[in-house]
Design a protein around this nucleic acid. Sequence first.
DNA 1: ATTGAAAATGTAAGCGCTTACACTAAGGGA
DNA 2: TCCCTTAGTGTAAGCGCTTACATTTTCAAT
Lengths: 352, 352
Amino acid sequence: MKEINSRMEPRKSAPTLEDVAKTAGVSTATVSRCLNDPDRVVEATRNRVMSAVQALQYTPNFGARVMAAKRTFTIGAIIPTMDNAIFARGLQAFQEALHARGYTLLVSSSAYRPEVEEEQIRALVARGADGLLLIGHDRDVPIYEYLAQRKVPALAAWSYIPDGRIPSIGFDNRTAMYALTQEVIDHGHRRIGMISGVIQGNDRARFRLEGMQDALVANGLDAAMIPPIETPYEIENGAAAFAKLMAGAEPPTAVMCGNDVLAVGAMIGARRLGLRVPQDVSITGFDDIELARIVSPALTTVHVPHREMGRKAADALVDMVEKKTSGQSAKLGTTIMTRGSLGPCPRPDGQG
Amino acid sequence: MKEINSRMEPRKSAPTLEDVAKTAGVSTATVSRCLNDPDRVVEATRNRVMSAVQALQYTPNFGARVMAAKRTFTIGAIIPTMDNAIFARGLQAFQEALHARGYTLLVSSSAYRPEVEEEQIRALVARGADGLLLIGHDRDVPIYEYLAQRKVPALAAWSYIPDGRIPSIGFDNRTAMYALTQEVIDHGHRRIGMISGVIQGNDRARFRLEGMQDALVANGLDAAMIPPIETPYEIENGAAAFAKLMAGAEPPTAVMCGNDVLAVGAMIGARRLGLRVPQDVSITGFDDIELARIVSPALTTVHVPHREMGRKAADALVDMVEKKTSGQSAKLGTTIMTRGSLGPCPRPDGQG
DNA sequence: ATTGAAAATGTAAGCGCTTACACTAAGGGA
DNA sequence: TCCCTTAGTGTAAGCGCTTACATTTTCAAT
């Protein structure tokens, strides 16, 4: 009776390692090794175990695995916003690369607010993230100390600096913007305005602004001539800032923007004012999002290899988590995409 | 020596429940109850425990919690893409609501590919997701059975149907598109083209197309007169499809699009062909993304309350997970936003 | 054959938490 | 006064896995 009963009893719950071990006729340790480090098990045994896994449709219990291995196989990422395509794209690649390495991605967003970011960092660490992807380097020291104390490896992306508190995989925002500014100057522009993102807690925005101002100074121009406008990355803000910039007595002939979103806003602002781009005013962006090629005229901007960055960041971070390396920073190249929105200065003689 | 040594020894690792229990002078069970169900502990004790938690900076170990509670406090969401702002926005609200209920969100994307979605579902379940948010209802039966067998509650969003295999929080795509089509017809259009998203595995796209065709028929028009074009949701595809649609002998006077992305593409296509919107041709979208208000002319489209949907979906799903309810579906309202891209039919007499 | 090192596998001790159950103390009704 | 209920707390048994260490097997060198 008992046998029949036990044979007929339906599965009460998911099969465990022990069930697999039993059907394969080995110990749980061997099954575990088959799954985590197959090379340590001889082929014949491995085959036997694998068929048992197949037969039972065994899936390891996540919680138990985490508990015993003291790792969650989870990487956390905190990005400013999901609304900007650049992060969406980079994260996509990041996620794919993590997946290939057996890790899952946990994302949250900070809305560009440092205090929210800090809370999210703590939340992800509490949730057992094995490593963290952060954007940029500008944040308070205590949070770096917290990370160090908890021994959670972290990596910064979208901004490369050689000597940050944590390693970074990214590009040099300052140099890129410097080069783009030089391009604008080479087109004859002397009165150049800037619509920057919010600098506070955002080193990418800061470096871009600095790079632009450095280039002005290097070309003998007064960086303070047209004060930059700082505004959150929203299309409408770009339009508003553009209007403000053009309202001055001697408006700029070129307006450089902290990113493509602001630049598209600026183009809309120009349209509203009845200004033609680039005949009346040139506009540049940064990031080379899809929209940059679609607006008319197409946007002159800086192309950033978001996907490559995501992929490399994933590999670097997993290495830090697994091999306990301190992390290898990498600087990625950017490309200036000169397109229709940048034209020659409309009144090259009236200034300088 | 020993005492001094042990006193000076730095924390080897994070404090555990037991450490808290010891400092508070209670049992681990009491500490656990303080954290998870405070009402079951008398106030004096609770205060003592809470100070100990504070003093030790105690954070529960995630893995242990998961293992013992047999829940991960994680909700998985599988969306078609992060590239479309509508999902980004809805998910944002979803995540905030989950956070308020003590859950974390795990996101992955399927790139609109059913087999990828299925793999992601299995991956999230294996990872212990307590519940799943899915988009729409069109998927193979076995995956629903898998979910049922594993007892993982799932909820569909962005598409409301009253009698699906899983409950849904969303809107009626068919009715919304029907209403929009009626609006187009009321503007005098009789030759109406459609650029639809890919129908396969996407009930939202399917319902929108059906709603449009139903409206045509209800108005005595031939739904097959201009065959709809089916193409993935990409701006460039919208432009290409538009060009194809206008290349016929008797091109449509209005082109309705499966979503705003395609519609923006169609507007770009029109610009390339030298067609004015809406004087030469009207264009409509669906979703009311930010871009819809920014293009010129602004896009006539269907507004969907993405944030509200995300919030409601989170509450419904957590209820399913915690209270073991079978899940309450909800239908959300949509609004037709009539804007510049829809105008009167340019040649109202030459047809019908 | 014999031996010993190396390879393969087994044994079993946790990992830190939740929770069923046990126990104690405090009232309330008889 | 005694018993029974109930609220508050403690005890301890897992949860399913990984891995240090122990044991067995294999096999090359003698």
